[in-house]
Design a protein around this nucleic acid. Structure first.
Length: 481
RNA sequence: CGGGGUGUGGCGCAGUUUGGUAGCGCGCAGCGUUUGGGACGCUGAAGUCAGAGGUUCAAGUCCUCUCACCCCGACCA
């Protein structure tokens, strides 16, 4: 048992912080609420970034970069937008030792400055759709922070697109939501619920916000990506107009969508266990670690030679592999160390293996003896290892999905709602015809918020669990990060 | 901003009640023995005890003020 990691059951929040520290993902910085992402955590983020970026390119987007500083007046052009973000803005008022004529906001998101540029770039329907993404840092002044889940500065991508029609923009909003879901499910092995945000929870300035909601190992919900249909709100504020085929001036319809370093937190809290991190092979910085083992000095050369050979075979097969040659650590220590870091597959090579030209495979997702396969022939590894990585990836998704489903409860009354929330937690699925005020009251009384109105469900129609009114609208409530 | 807590080698802490040589564990460095599930021995380096002021022959310890950080609540990708 990992003595440096608090068991999940004892204190999930402590467990989360312990894992981040022990696996060297990140560290608190000297600045309150900001974190330093360490190389291992950053590699994980890079893999998340690459998986998303590839999908953005495949769906026709180009990357660009817009400035960190945004004139305060830009934010004020969209009333709801500025109102939503005002409390969490960091504002620069002094530059070069002089008071600025106009304060500059450190971007909390870039709709406004991008809207300003789109107004210049878009003249004709021939310029549409305009599909741009940016990878950037943003700043939101937060009261309470948590590594990866909520920090004052975070890394993310924000996609911003402009379209000729509302239908097209809305379709694009949904398309990007699907891209996020595809990434979450297939790369991060995180089952997500696609849904619409309630009026109360939607993005400041959006017509509609879509979300992918994931369930963490403690049953809490985590919004892991959002996609917004902005209608012509920002187009009107920034005069993003085009001439259509009939030479008539029209407002564009825009979208924006983002996934942040919060996704790292989602990976940690979806898959992690009391041994530490568990990483899905597609995102793991190191997919396979080789641990050489010997007893007598005479055995060392043979073991190291085989380790070397296995490493180069796997590298050639496109596997991210690391050979642990630390001479001052015992194999047992290394096993635990790499398990704590979440490496999906371990290859043990000792004298017995050298003798039979074979190795031992140990899966991270099946701890202990159960996950070990002895006597795997070396010559089969270029096939076996990629296969097993794919198997682990699939098993992790299956496990997470089973847990999510087991912790999703349909309830039909407010009493049952409170009881199930208290006793079991997880997602509470209900028929919902309540108002924003009802929603606020529920959150106030139970600390569970309306996560989303799921896009797909098999519940049909029924009476609202709160008001009794007949409805076919479904909502998912949960305690959330 | 309200409530609670903590500041002592890199990290985690004891020592504060009752003032009297700055300690323990881990980690780190060197050497040796070890290595199929978290090895061990010996040697060693490392601390303005958060800061300022005060009481005292003497302050990590008592008094006053300041600062920082953490946890719990209200806002949030």
């Amino acid at each position: 048992m990992a003595e440096s990691i608090t068991p999940q059951r004892e204190d999930f929040s402590r467990w989360y912080l312990d894992v981040i520290r022990e696996a060297e993902l990140a560290e608190n910085s000297p600045v309150r609420g900001s974190m330093v992402i360490r190389p291992y955590g950053y590699e994980l983020w890079e893999n998340i970034r690459d998986g998303l970026d590839r999908r953005f390119k495949e769906t026709g987007h180009k990357n660009a970069y817009f400035p960190l500083f945004i004139p305060m007046s830009f934010l004020q052009k969209e009333a709801e937008h500025v109102e939503g973000f005002a409390p969490e803005l960091a504002v620069v008022t002094i530059g070069g030792g002089k008071e600025l004529d106009e304060p500059l906001v450190v971007r909390p998101t870039s709709e406004t400055i991008i809207g300003h540029m789109y107004a210049r770039w878009i003249q004709s329907y021939r310029d549409l759709p305009l599909l741009i993404n940016q990878w950037a840092n943003v700043v939101r002044w937060e009261m309470r922070t948590r590594p990866f889940l909520r920090t004052m500065e975070f890394l993310w991508q924000e996609g911003h697109t402009a379209h000729a029609t509302a239908e097209e923009a809305l379709a694009h909003t949904r398309r990007m939501l699907d891209v996020y879901a595809d990434f979450a499910i297939n790369d991060a092995a995180i089952p997500v619920v696609r849904g619409v945000k309630s009026e109360r929870e939607k993005f400041a300035g959006a017509v509609a916000s879509y979300t992918i909601e994931a369930m963490m190992a403690n049953g809490w919900a985590l919004q892991s990506g959002t996609s917004h249909y902005l209608g012509d709100n920002f187009s009107r504020a920034f005069e993003i107009k085009y001439l259509d085929e009939n030479n008539e001036s029209r407002y564009c319809h825009t979208t924006s969508w983002g996934v942040s370093t919060r996704m790292v937190g989602a990976v940690i809290m979806t898959h992690g266990d009391d041994q530490g991190l568990r990483l899905p092979p597609k995102l793991a910085p190191t997919q396979v670690v080789i641990v050489p083992i010997w007893r007598k000095e005479a055995e060392q050369a043979g073991v190291l030679a085989l380790a070397e050979r296995v490493e180069s075979m796997l590298k050639t097969a496109g596997v991210r592999v690391h050979k642990d040659l630390r001479m001052d650590q015992t194999p047992g220590f290394k096993f635990n160390d790499w398990e704590m870091r979440g490496v999906p597959l371990r290859i043990e090579i000792g004298p017995r293996d050298v003798a039979q030209n074979a190795v031992v495979l140990a899966r991270r997702d099946r701890p202990g003896r159960e996950g070990k396969t002895m006597g795997v022939p070396v010559d089969s590894l270029t096939e076996q290892v990629p296969n097993m990585l794919a198997e682990i990836q699939a098993a992790m998704l299956a496990d997470a999905t089973a847990r999510r489903d087991a912790n999703t409860h349909d309830v039909t009354s407010y009493d049952e709602f409170k009881r199930v929330l208290d006793e079991q937690g997880g997602f509470l699925r209900v028929h919902w015809a309540g108002s924003s005020e009802d929603e606020a009251r529920i959150q106030d009384e139970t600390r569970a918020s309306l996560r989303c109105l799921p896009l797909e469900s098999d519940l049909g129609s029924g009476p609202c669990f709160l008001t009794g009114q007949q409805t076919d609208r479904i909502a998912i409530f949960a305690r959330a990060y």
